[in-house]
Design a protein around this nucleic acid. Sequence first.
DNA 1: GCTGGTATGTGTACGTTGTGCACATGTGAG
DNA 2: CTCACATGTGCACAACGTACACATACCAGC
Lengths: 213, 213
Amino acid sequence: MTTGLGTSPARTSYRHGDLRRALIEAGVDLAGEGGPSAVVLREATRRAGVTPSAAYRHFADRQALLDAVCSSCQALVARAIEADQARIHCDDAAEAARLRFRAVGTGYLRFALEEPGRFQTAFSASSDLESATSSARAGEHGLTPFQLLTVALDDLVTEGLLPAQRRPAAEFLAWSAVHGLAELFIDGPLRALPDPVKQTLITRVIDMVEQGL
Amino acid sequence: MTTGLGTSPARTSYRHGDLRRALIEAGVDLAGEGGPSAVVLREATRRAGVTPSAAYRHFADRQALLDAVCSSCQALVARAIEADQARIHCDDAAEAARLRFRAVGTGYLRFALEEPGRFQTAFSASSDLESATSSARAGEHGLTPFQLLTVALDDLVTEGLLPAQRRPAAEFLAWSAVHGLAELFIDGPLRALPDPVKQTLITRVIDMVEQGL
DNA sequence: GCTGGTATGTGTACGTTGTGCACATGTGAG
DNA sequence: CTCACATGTGCACAACGTACACATACCAGC
């Protein structure tokens, strides 16, 4: 399902065509199978049908490949959030803003539970504030997960649901709570919890953020 | 500073004496220098003045060593929390309980900022709910970080600061927020923030938890 | 249309890591 | 004193990241 066919028809020619993209895709597959540590340069080249050294024509080193894979995975997170937001149909503008805000959390956590390997990879590479807004990490609307959260909070202020004086740095507070829960789920003590209980916790954490912001 | 002298006087005899402990200590040093990925079996044996294979008399594999190192690091987190709690002097029992609760957060985050490598290592290995209460991870009072949080929350209920019906699972909500902020600080987008700003965020996250629980 | 330069992939090699297995050496129980 | 067991050594192997010289395909300019 992951190898060959659509992407690389067992390449006949010397040239590959789009090796860079192929390596990133292989890397994202590997990330899904075993998290960031499973993104192994040699295995990625193997899946692309290419010699290990070939990777160095497109990436400075393994970390550079991992960074690219990480960006792709963040884009997947953005899409998950967008998917949850797209299902909202609400006439009341204020309530709609509130639901969009909550959807950032539910989409984020849904992705963490459905794709733990890719989720961990998405946030494994150290990124600073500017790279958190790089377009390589964006979803369909061109926004990164972080930017989606920022927009949702701005809308809360616009709709009068969040006092303006509490707006500064609010994205970091919300992100902390939601991301922390994801970590607890993925390889923290809450890993073995049955799914319904997890869903309850997701709701409660988002409640806490909404009330405590 | 880390090698030899106090711990291993360049061993003269064939036997080491307490290799298991020496390997864990070397591992904790390595964790402090470069996080979980830096705790490398061969380097640990090197620092203990011993052949790589010797490690396998005490640990099944590298992961087993890392687990032990992780437990030691969690014990350090517990001590950091205990240290913050010990500085509280307050006659009002309710206020004291509230401060002890907040000290769990400040101690946890202080350790994360002071010892990022060891902090990451402490929570790198996947642990379930029972191992989160293992005595190897406990501080001076015999309680793990997680148990310290649990006790602090129980006290909040006792003092009437937290409604009993909101008590269940509250440790997971609080842990999520605080741990998530730590991640943002260590290798998330908030890494480069000046220290005073970080301190402000710490206060605000704990405020959020207190208010949102 | 040929030719040469550049981008891209190959082959080979080196050092490092985790780990298994046969062997050596201490240490304590009988 | 001796022998079994625990513990450390030596050597080997596969996998990984990475460097470097070489081979090949494509593009520009004549």
